[in-house]
Design a protein around this nucleic acid. Structure first.
Lengths: 226, 226
DNA sequence: GGTTTGCAGATTGTTGACATTCTTCAGACG
DNA sequence: CGTCTGAAGAATGTCAACAATCTGCAAACC
């Protein structure tokens, strides 16, 4: 217990905490894509110097959440439809791989946990509880991606998901999509439960590809700014 | 011409240049995996202060080339066989996607360029010129991955390739592997030339999967340190 | 003899100040 | 009237010094 607390403090330095906090602020929508991020303002806000802020920003830059322009500052990354589509394509490939790997490794307890998330989403859909749906949806995806047992795969996948949150988050979950989306979840989990890697690969790929199609269709009628 | 030079300076700040240089030093083998990287030593070496060094290191940390332990310092990342295998799996998925996309987009000029690289490698194999082979090999892979027209895909793929260079670089190219490897290159490029996405996907996936198998077989007899 | 304690040196973490670059806006010019 | 110039202010880039932490070794203790 104490060892855990020490270990927690051991691998979380100030710049890492600051990075997490800035990320939360960006993904929470406090800054909009394209907005300038002022170093001094952040330093003032957190009551620290600009050094750790700058270190955190260099890390966020590599994560793909901000764009750094030398001598101009850092800006929240702005994604256009084409870039979002590209990220979806990569995400689909990685998620398919995750499903495939997990199907070969999943224990009965793993499957039970996945089914729990899907059931919670079924429930959330019935009650029109979108907040719970979003939380459970992310939990399911994270469980699959970490359950695959490939740390590189998980970290790259989660980075992509974070980037996608920069692209019009509000429209990601439409009322009539969630039901269809959760039907796909059922197929994914059952493919894993059946330990069928080919079926799991297809189900997981299809899930992301369909989500991409839905999103792109939704935005096709809108004007896309570069 | 001038505009290009200005643009080059515009998006290359000191920390970015330092990052590139540290990366070169690490991948060049000057530091071995597990080695500690001393901030002050780097600052002295480049004749600058520790600030930009630290910023560069935070970025390299996210790239996966170093491990940062708070209050202890940064160390060149050490990869064991299992981690390398994981990276290969992700790389295979991304490379397959790249081949698939490129098959749908490649122009005649693109194909000609790819064939040029493969021919150069055929030549290098015949002359036992490994250095040229390695250069052309990377050039071919980079051309495919950037030719796919998906910037996210390219950046993630190239990050993985960099990480893999931390894993026993010397054994990556064995004398008897290069011939077989370049046969696979022929199939990849011809699949792209035929604009056959399914065939290209399979050829590209197979190329990386085979490389993984070869590497793992080579190291199976050695003792793997955690 | 082996373990523990405590100090000295070295290294990392953070800060505030200074240098450089960019942005803005007012005034001059064509 | 629109464009250009340039100076004031603000923000970023860099640095050197200080604080906190860790490492290594020697002395003390059981």
């Amino acid at each position: 217990m104490l060892a855990q607390a020490i270990e927690l403090l051991r691998d979380r330095s100030l710049p890492m905490l600051i990075e997490q906090e800035i990320e939360r602020v960006i993904l929470g929508g406090e800054y909009a894509p394209g907005d300038k991020i002022n170093e001094q303002a952040l330093a003032l806000r957190f009551g620290i110097s600009r050094g750790p802020i700058r270190e955190a920003l260099r890390s966020l830059d590599r994560t793909g959440l901000i764009d750094t322009i030398p001598n101009r500052g850092v800006f929240v990354r702005r994604l256009n439809a084409a870039q979002a589509a590209d990220i979806y394509d990569v995400r689909a490939a990685l998620f398919a791989l995750a499903g495939q790997c997990f199907a070969l490794r999943a224990s009965a307890a793993d499957v039970e946990r996945l089914r729990g998330h899907v059931a919670a989403m079924d429930d959330a859909v019935a009650r029109d509880d979108f907040e719970t749906y979003i939380i459970e949806n992310f939990a399911l995806h994270e469980a699959i991606v970490t359950g695959a047992g490939n740390a590189t795969l998980a970290s790259h996948y989660l980075a992509l998901v974070k980037q996608l949150r920069l692209y019009r988050t509000r429209n990601l979950m439409l009322a009539d999509s969630v039901h269809a989306s959760n039907e796909e979840h059922h197929e994914m989990v059952e493919a894993i439960a059946a330990h069928d890697p080919v079926r799991a690969y297809a189900a997981h790929f299809n899930h992301v590809a369909t989500a991409k199609t839905r999103l792109m269709a939704n935005h096709l009628t809108e004007k896309e700014l570069p």
